[in-house]
């Protein structure tokens, strides 16, 4: 087990706090699907779903900048789910934060082990 220094996660925590306006975030209510092991960090498939959510934001807590994407669902959305492909610089947690219509926030995280990092630095 490798313990990461707190500063690695602080940027993601700050980004999430900025998104939620400092509101408390409860666990659950969001599904996040990603491969357990990604051989190529340049393109990692990821899906998020949060029934009833207005928005879902995605953060990668080990990337140089933690923000990945924010999905806002409009009145013509057929579901509250979306899939995309993301870059991960190394093994890390990917966090999905859902904004619910009552102003509350819910989150879920999944760890993705990355064999070859995808930030090209």
């Amino acid at each position: 087990i490798t313990l990461l220094p707190i500063s690695v996660h602080a940027a993601a925590d700050d980004a999430i706090a900025a998104y939620t306006g400092g509101a408390s975030v409860t666990e659950g209510g969001v599904m996040i699907t990603a491969p357990e092991i990604a051989e190529n960090g340049n393109t990692v498939p990821i899906s998020v779903e949060a029934p009833g959510a207005e928005e879902i934001a995605i953060y990668a807590d080990g990337n140089p900048t933690p923000g990945v994407a924010v999905f806002k669902f409009g009145p013509a959305a057929g579901s509250h789910r979306a899939s995309t492909r993301i870059r991960l610089g190394g093994t890390q947690d990917v966090v999905a934060v859902a904004k619910m219509p009552d102003g509350s926030f819910q989150q879920a995280a999944v760890e993705v082990k990355v064999t070859i990092g995808g930030c090209g630095g």
Partner: peptide
């Protein structure tokens, strides 16, 4: 509006979105 997505540099080249 169906979906309005904000993308950062962490989205892969040739952005793919499914909804």
């Amino acid at each position: 509006m169906v979906i309005d997505m904000a993308l950062e540099g962490a989205i892969s080249a040739n952005p793919y979105v499914e909804f």
